[in-house]
Design a protein around this nucleic acid. Structure first.
Length: 565
RNA sequence: GGAUCGGUAGUUUAGUUGGUUAGAACAUCGGCCUGUCACGCCGAAGGUCGCGGGUUCAAGUCCCGUUCGAUCCGCCA
């Protein structure tokens, strides 16, 4: 058994002998004496190879060592002569040296100051992972999984594995299909149905660290195969589930980052999130909200706000604004940059108003629309937006979706540019999502999935499905969707109605969900649960801006594993 | 499926309105050096400029195509 690690030997065992294994990180050859940094996964320590203290054969061998050779040494731990600026306090005076493995020249420099292209890093991932910063992410990932397991274990959850090879498909993402010589399998997008079946068995606190597969295009936070912390419980309501998951997340932050959340996570309804932040995953570290202004500007002006594009006739429009405190310092160039930025999201543009002196009315402002507006409009805007000197207002007018998207991405962009984050961590539960949404061809689809229990009445669901809401909840931290869940339907009739509303034919229903509905006839406990994206939790806790950094062997945008291709 | 950015030595990169032999730093290799810790000093080697085509007297540079990588939109129950 290995006892000593390079990163762990310290001055508590001075003047004793130690056996170390490791990689040659760097050699400083002074002729008769060599200084060698030996590295393992926990850190580095300095070996001193002195021609006077080592036999000739060993010294000759030492002179031949190169970077990344793997060696075994036995040496005496000594205090290093004191010199300013160096904190490593000990040396290992080598008395015996063994070469275990050689290495050719590395394809890139470890501990390079400049960023190495991922293309190369992932091709040689085994070398990439010799770097401390990436080892650390892998270590933290392991700790997170370990802590989640012990937390859930303490809370009486049991870990149950569900099949990877199955023929259950829930509509949603594209599915990976596996052809074997005997059968065709689908890789699971999540263990959703299996875990609900387990509830039917009475295994009422289930969890799984589950590999999931979705054949969709990649993003910086999306991989085709990823890991979910999948949880399902019976006889717990929404609040109870939220409580236990929140406790788990808080314990992770406490144990891994030594950060304590002072209060319960904020809970906000979906509709409020959309109205105030323009998105269902707001980043509450940024203190900017969206404010409706349509009712404080005269009808005659709305077309100007709509950029002369259309009259405000449809109910599907929104005229709204965000206020940037101290924003007058933004240059016209920056403002134009933001205008072209929102155009990427469908907005026709932005109207901006710089407030230099609010008491002077129009004279205290700078804006391209000054000649179209009156002091009264300014007065109204001042009241609505609580305008003060130095503020910058961006207004956007378009369909609700375009205004929401544009202003929410604008808020994020401005916050990034101007470093407007007022706190480190902003967790939030977004609850009561719509039950359904219409896709591009007008078909009704589930907002989450077809098993989500509604909060609306049956009449509303049937006759006004788009206005129906779900008993669901998403966990958002810093604008990142960590996961979501819901209370599930546990009523045979209701589940069947939902399937029908979603347009499933009797045949599809029988083929895909027949067994599931049948299970309902044998009794289904009230149940619910959620799934958290493990990779995203690791990203958050390791402050990684890329999911590939927290996965040992990630895939590229083209679904290629650069290591093995 | 769409948009944007990028690919020059092992790595990170410079390369002007197209114009001599594509330059640097670090790494590598050889030599010297007993207190370095980004050691130092002397020397050397290392480039089909992603790939294919076009324009031109002349292309790393301009144009077209393609491929790979990244980011985003669509997509992601």
């Amino acid at each position: 058994m290995r006892i000593n690690y390079c990163g762990k030997v310290n001055q508590t065992i001075l003047n004793s002998y130690v056996k170390l294994y490791g990689w040659v990180n760097k050699i400083r050859d002074h002729g008769g004496i060599l200084f060698l940094d030996l590295r393992d996964m926990y850190g580095r320590t300095q070996l001193v190879i002195d021609s006077k203290k080592l036999d000739f054969t060993n010294f000759v061998l030492a002179k031949k060592l190169k970077s990344e050779y793997i060696i075994k040494v036995i040496g005496l731990i000594k205090l290093r002569p004191v010199k300013d600026g160096f904190t490593n306090k000990i040396d290992i005076f080598v008395i015996e040296l063994n070469l275990l493995s050689k290495s050719i020249k590395l394809p890139f420099k470890l501990y390079a100051k400049k960023k190495i292209k991922e293309e190369i890093r992932f091709k040689f991932r085994y070398i990439d992972l010799r770097q401390k910063k990436y080892i650390k992410k892998i270590l933290i990932r392991s700790q997170i999984i370990h802590k989640i397991r012990s937390f859930l274990d303490i809370n009486k959850f049991i870990e149950i594995e569900t099949p990877i090879l199955s023929n259950i498909t829930v509509e949603g993402a594209r599915t990976f299909i596996i052809q074997s010589h005997k059968q065709t399998f689908a890789l699971p997008q999540s263990p959703q149905i299996y875990k609900q079946i387990l509830m039917c068995s009475g295994l009422d606190r289930y969890y799984q660290i589950a590999k999931c597969f979705r054949d969709e295009d990649l993003r910086s936070d999306r991989q085709p195969e990823f890991t979910q912390i999948d949880i399902e419980t019976s006889f717990m309501n929404k609040q109870a589930i939220i409580n236990v998951v929140e406790k788990m997340i808080k314990s992770l932050f406490k144990e891994l980052l030594h950060f304590t959340f002072s209060s319960a996570f904020k809970i906000i309804k979906y509709t409020d999130a959309i109205n105030k932040y323009g998105t269902d995953k707001p980043d509450l570290r940024v203190p900017i909200k969206i404010t409706d202004i349509e009712d404080v500007i005269p009808q005659s002006l709305t077309c100007i706000f709509l950029n002369k594009l259309q009259k405000l006739t449809s109910q599907c429009n929104r005229i709204a604004a965000i206020k940037l405190k101290g924003g007058v310092c933004l240059s016209l160039k920056q403002i134009i940059k933001y205008i072209s930025f929102v155009k990427l999201y469908g907005a026709k543009g932005l109207i901006w108003i710089k407030v230099y002196n609010i008491n002077l009315g129009l004279n205290g402002l700078q804006s391209p629309i000054l000649k179209h507006i009156t002091d009264e409009v300014i007065h109204n805007l001042k009241k609505r937006l609580h305008l003060k000197n130095g503020d910058l207002v961006f207004c956007c007018a378009d369909t609700i979706n375009i205004v929401n998207t544009s202003l929410s991405v604008l808020i994020t962009q401005i916050a990034n540019d101007l470093k407007l984050y007022i706190k480190a961590w902003a967790p939030i539960w977004v609850v009561n999502f719509p039950l359904f949404k219409r896709d591009i061809v007008g078909t009704l689809t589930s907002y989450h999935h077809p098993f989500t229990a509604p909060t609306s009445t049956l009449d509303d669901i049937i006759y006004n499905p788009e206005k129906a809401f779900a008993n669901s909840f998403d966990l958002i931290i810093n604008g990142i969707e960590l996961g979501g869940g819901s209370i599930r339907i546990n009523d045979y009739k209701l589940q069947k109605i939902i399937f029908k509303l979603l347009g499933l034919t009797q045949r599809t229903l029988n083929n895909n969900f027949g067994f599931f509905l049948k299970a309902f006839k044998f009794g289904v406990p009230p149940h619910g649960g959620l799934a958290l994206g493990l990779d995203r939790i690791v990203m958050l806790l390791t402050k990684s801006d890329n999911i590939r950094d927290v996965i040992a062997f990630p895939k590229t945008n083209k679904f290629i594993c650069p290591l093995s291709v």
